Amino acid sequence: MTTTLTTEYWVVDEAGHLADPDLIAGLPGAAGTASPYSVAVETPPCERCVELEAALDARLAATVEAAHDRSCRLLGLGLRPDLLTESASPVTDQPPVATAGTRVSFEPDPAASTDLYNVLLALDPAFVLVNTTSRAADGQQYACGRPSLYHRGSIAQYRFGDVAVGGPSSNDTATAATDSSTDWQPVALLDDGSRVEWRSLDPTTPTLLVDLIADIKTILQQARHHRLSVDSFGNGFHGDRLVLPNEEWRAIYAQEAVEKGLSSLLVRAYLERLGVDTGWYLAATPPTVSAAADMSMVCRQHAAHLEADIGARQTS
C-alpha cells in the first residue's frame, strides 16, 4: 500500500516572526500551500516506511537549507504563530483559516478502501500524539486548528458484515462532507475510492511523523486480518476482531484529545488498545504552545528543535 506524506511548515525570520512573503516565495514548496507564510514538503508515493523516511528527510533538509540561505527558518506549529498571541482576535467555534498540518495519503486495494476509511476514522484521536498548539479564549479551545465543538458533516451509511458504520460511500459524498467550514472531517475518500487521506496532523519533527505513520500502517496491516465491528467505546484488537468505537465515542475521544492532549488517560488507554505506545510520544513530543507564551521566543525554540531533529537524523 503506497503512502504519500505532505506536511506544511510556517517560515519565520531569525527574530522568530513570520518571514517576508517575498522571501518565502522562492522556497521549495511555497506554491503548494494556501498561505504566503508557509511551505509544503511532499514525498513521492512510497511503499515502505523506510523509503518514506528517506524521501522526507532529504526534501525537508533541502528546504531548511534553502530557508537558511534567505535568513529564514521552518517552524512546526499547527496554528499560525501570530494567531496564538493573546492580542489576536477572539476565538469563535470556527477553526482558524491559517493552520498548517500534515496529510497522509494511502492508496489501498480498492476492495479494502472502505475498511481503511473506517479504521483511519477511528484513529483520528491519534493526532494528539504530535499536537503542538492549543489556545483557550471565550470558552473555546483549539488544537491543530480544530474546533472544540467536534462537528461532523452529514455522511452516508454503508455496511460491512452486519455492522453499519458512518462514512462516505462515494467520492461525491466525501467532498460534500468536507466543504463546510463548520464540519471537521479528518478522513477523506478521494479519486473514487482509490485514495484515502488522513488529514491535519501537526507539522512536527520528522522523527515523530515517521514513527506515527509507521504505527498507523502497522495497525492498518493488522486490521486486514481481523473482522471489523463497532461496539460503543471500541475495544481495539480482540481475538479475531478489531472493535472500533461508534460515532458518539469517536467524538468523545477527539474532544478529550483537543481539551486535554496526552494528559487524557481516556485517550491514551484507547490508543494503547489499538497498539500505540503513547508513553514514547509523551516523552518525545515538544511542549504545546499557548497564548501565554512569548511567541517569538517559542518560534525560535521550535525552529531550533526541528533543525536539531533533522541534523540528528542525517548523522545517524
Rank of each mutant, 00 (worst) to 15 (best):
V104S: 03
E272F: 01
P21W: 05
L27P: 05
T132R: 07
A40Y: 06
D179S: 14
V128K: 01
T114G: 12
R48F: 11
R159C: 12
R300Q: 14
T285Q: 09
V210Q: 07
T278R: 00
L123I: 05
V119G: 03
A156P: 00
T99L: 02
S35M: 09
A136L: 13
G279S: 07
G167T: 05
A66E: 12
H68I: 07
W198S: 03
A257P: 06
R199F: 03
F237Q: 07
H151R: 05
R195E: 08
D69E: 15
V41N: 02
V210C: 11
T132S: 15
S38P: 10
A156L: 07
I252K: 13
I155V: 15
G153P: 01
D109L: 03
L244T: 13
G236D: 07
V64L: 11
H226P: 03
T315A: 14
L79T: 10
S170W: 03
Y281H: 01
A284N: 04
C144P: 00
L23H: 11
G275S: 05
A303F: 03
L60A: 07
P45K: 12
R313A: 10
D191E: 13
G261P: 08
L18I: 02
G32V: 02
A15W: 03
A284I: 01
T2L: 09
C46F: 01
S170Y: 02
D191G: 12
G16M: 05
N131G: 15
N171W: 07
V210S: 08
D211N: 13
A143H: 03
T175E: 08
Y158V: 05
A137T: 02
D69V: 11
V298G: 10
D22Q: 14
T63L: 08
S263Y: 09
A58E: 15
S71Y: 13
A112T: 06
R250K: 14
A88P: 01
Y117V: 08
V163I: 15
A34H: 14
L212T: 02
N235V: 02
E47T: 15
D20Y: 00
P245I: 13
S38Y: 09
H302F: 07
T175A: 14
S229F: 04
E86A: 15
L23Q: 12
Q301I: 06
V50M: 08
V97N: 11
H302S: 08
R70I: 09
P147R: 01
Q157S: 14
